[in-house]
Design a protein around this nucleic acid. Structure first.
Lengths: 340, 340
DNA sequence: CTGAAAGCGCTTACAG
DNA sequence: CTGAAAGCGCTTACAG
């Protein structure tokens, strides 16, 4: 007992056999009527469909999985790195993915991967628990990506991959950062500082490219002294912010809201005023920057939509429907007080 | 093709039959050696174990599921309500749950439920895709809870349930709020305002109880004028904060960090100083309150640990191991500038 | 249009 | 200690 005592959740489930017997037809016929595959007589089909609706028959997905060699599950890989755990980004992605998946009767399996520990992913793949995988970020040297390619597992990444064979869905961070930069340039601010995160994250590189694009188009050369990447801690961010002020920047673009919150705090404690002394821009319209003393001009991505689109691509791919190799989603610029 | 072309992820999986044939034993024997259930000769067992290790045999979990009527999946229900989506709480819970589950070879299935839409949960239960469920919050009138009881599905809640039959794991919010209140009382501040969220969330009621406990122990009666519950929007929060100031409170306890951020912003714009004019306390040591101009005295719960413990209880329960009906986890008080 | 039968890869009484 | 066989609940060639 014990282990199985819960099975059926207390109520016996009716099987395809029960339906077939009750109706005096074969399981084959029931199966065909339910799945819609294969020919069944109009009237037979209706009898079956009515019966299962009335008697609340639900096919056992596990049995179906075994017979079809499909699981109707997808795994979503979330990075477990401490400083990313708090970001609302991944949670919102998950919501979108899960919403779309469930309308197609797929389920979403959580999978946390760490820099040096893919064991959760490996276990899921070894156990054949999913039909495909979504990676929620991309790295320059991406271990989960490599692993999945090696194993031949179908997957889609949220983000941009250096490998063109990888199916990818992303917001257009390059254009977005270019637009943010151009916005400042058009207002006549020529010295624009940039503070960004980990260079091993491809998104950091994309943003940096967009920044350079904007400058070069305007004929301004990039001053590497006011571009600070790999800013990962509050201490480095503080140092970086003050250094940019020393270098007389007109504006600072922060590549994420956490960095921006560090910068804001530093400025507050040093009496540097935004936007009077320096303009400030950030990348997500997230709650990290909400309800501050000053509102920050940022980009806005529809992250839930990003999840939805990605899941759509993966499920289409799994079902042999043609898809785009690369999907780029839009963004909006939200103008607020910090650039006034 | 199409649908099945991905199966096997490109590499044929070796089955129990292959192992049995290669070793000249029966499937039964292999099964027993692998599962550890049933008697197998010492040497036979070792032969099997060596072979599967060398040839990287992994039992097909789907087949095992069908045979055992178990899925090795648990569902975690996350509320989809807009204003909760952003809270790091649920994400951290998920991380803890997923971490524990995977060490026991269980997987975690995401399930988003809305106030009036349990369809994701219903689908998962109807399809028998999980062995049990974790609810990540509790309401006074809890629809998912009722649904699961009705269906006879094993589940555990994170939070406190009004139904004593429900297995629950929670941080001790009542004691925590009592301690926060007592802390102010001991410093001689007798007028303590309370701003809280939705009264239909049991956690709100627990906190309120703790607040009352502390006051009553000190012989102070509760002044309902300075207790504001159901504060759900920034507008109401602002109004509430100013009203408390009008009523000359010495301190304000906010039941969550979002509320506290609204209060902070209101005070800043009105020139009300913390802690000089009023002390301020909040409930989570979350990033919402990080990098503000002032640091806030809060409670600290180990939310990931909460997830781990809950998952442990559920998995033990599913496997017939004795468990506590109610587990209460600790908290810490983090003293910061806002109560100096 | 419909059905009998084999098969998906396991587990587990039952028998020896 | 070990194995042949039935069964979990579906799907799907194959035959009619």
């Amino acid at each position: 007992m014990g282990q199985n005592s819960f099975y059926g959740y207390g109520q016996k489930k009716i099987t395809i056999d029960d339906v077939a017997n009750a109706l005096g037809v074969s399981k084959t016929t029931v199966s065909r009527a339910v799945s819609g595959k294969g020919r069944v007589g109009e009237s037979t089909r209706n009898r079956v469909l009515n019966y299962i609706a009335e008697n609340n028959y639900k096919p056992n997905l596990i049995a179906k999985s075994l017979a079809e060699s499909k699981t109707f599950n997808i795994a979503v890989v979330i990075p477990g790195d401490y400083n990313l755990v708090d970001l609302p980004f991944f949670q919102k992605c998950l919501m979108g993915i899960s919403e779309f998946a469930s309308t197609f009767n797929y389920d979403v399996l959580m999978c946390v991967c760490y820099e040096n520990d893919l064991s959760q992913l490996e276990r899921i793949i070894d156990n054949h628990k999913v039909d495909g995988v979504i990676l929620t970020r991309t790295l320059v040297d991406d271990k989960p990506e490599k692993y999945l390619i090696e194993k031949g597992v179908p997957f889609v990444v949220i983000g941009t991959s250096l490998n063109d064979d990888v199916i990818q869905v992303d917001n257009d961070h390059r254009s977005a950062c270019k637009e943010l930069t151009s916005l400042m340039l058009m207002k006549g601010y020529k010295r624009i500082g940039l503070i960004g995160g980990d260079e091993s994250h491809i998104v950091t590189l994309s943003r940096y490219s967009g920044y350079k694009d904007a400058l070069l188009e305007t004929g301004i050369s990039v001053d590497k002294q006011i571009v600070h990447l790999n800013v990962l801690t509050s201490i480095v961010a503080e140092k970086s912010a003050l250094e940019l002020i020393d270098k007389h920047v007109d504006a600072i673009i922060c590549m994420d809201d956490t960095i921006c919150s560090y910068v804001l705090k530093t400025f507050y404690s040093k009496g540097i005023r935004v936007p009077e002394d320096v303009k400030l821009l950030s990348f997500y319209n997230s709650m990290i920057l909400e309800n501050r003393n000053i509102s920050i001009t940022t980009l806005q991505f529809d992250v839930k939509e990003l999840g939805v689109e990605t899941c759509k691509v993966l499920i289409n791919y799994l079902n042999g429907i043609e898809i785009e190799k690369k999907t780029l989603l839009k963004y909006e610029v939200i103008l607020k007080e910090s650039t006034k």
